[in-house]
C-alpha cells in the first residue's frame, strides 16, 4: 500500500536527510500501517525525536497522554505552538536527548522512534 505525504514539499526540509514533517506520511496513516490506534489507545506515550510535534499531536486524541522530546529547541518551540493552536491538553513537549531521559523508570507504555534512529 502507498500513502501520500501531507502536501507539496516546497522549501521545507532542505538539507536534512528525510526528517521534515512535510516529507513524511500523515500520523494517522503511519499509525494505521503499524497496527492502528489500538497501539496507543489510553496509553502513556513518549515520542522520542518528536521534531515539530507532528506525530505526537497526531496520536494525542487516542493516548492518555503524550510526551514529546527533541534536542532541537526550534522544533520544540514549533511543537508547543502547534499544541496550543490545536488545544491539545494531554501533550507536553520538552527539549532533551534520548541518551539521558528526564523521566522515571516505567513512566511510559509506548515509546515511538518515528524516523529518529
Amino acid at each position: 500500500m502507498s500513502i501520500d505525504a501531507a502536501g507539496p514539499v516546497g522549501e521545507v526540509g532542505r538539507h536534512v536527510p528525510a526528517f521534515s514533517s512535510a516529507l513524511r506520511p500523515r500520523p494517522g496513516d503511519e499509525l494505521a500501517e503499524w497496527g492502528g490506534p489500538a497501539l496507543v489507545l489510553g496509553k502513556r506515550v513518549l515520542d522520542l525525536g518528536c521534531g515539530d510535534g507532528r506525530f505526537a499531536l497526531g496520536v494525542a486524541s487516542f493516548a492518555a497522554n503524550v510526551e514529546g522530546l527533541d534536542p532541537d529547541e526550534e522544533g520544540i518551540a514549533a511543537a508547543k505552538k502547534a499544541a496550543r493552536k490545536a488545544g491539545a491538553r494531554n501533550v507536553r513537549f520538552s527539549v532533551g536527548a534520548a541518551q539521558r531521559l528526564p523521566h522515571p523508570g516505567g513512566a511510559f507504555d509506548v515509546v515511538i522512534l518515528s524516523w529518529t534512529l
Binding site: L39, R44, A98, Q99, G106, L113, W115
Partner: peptide
C-alpha cells in the same frame, strides 16, 4: 538511547521504530 528507552518503558511496554 535504547537502554534509556528500556528503562522508561513499563513492563510489557512497546517500542515502535519506524524509518
Amino acid at each position: 538511547a535504547l537502554r534509556e528507552v528500556h528503562r522508561v518503558l513499563a513492563p510489557g511496554g512497546i517500542l515502535i521504530d519506524a524509518r
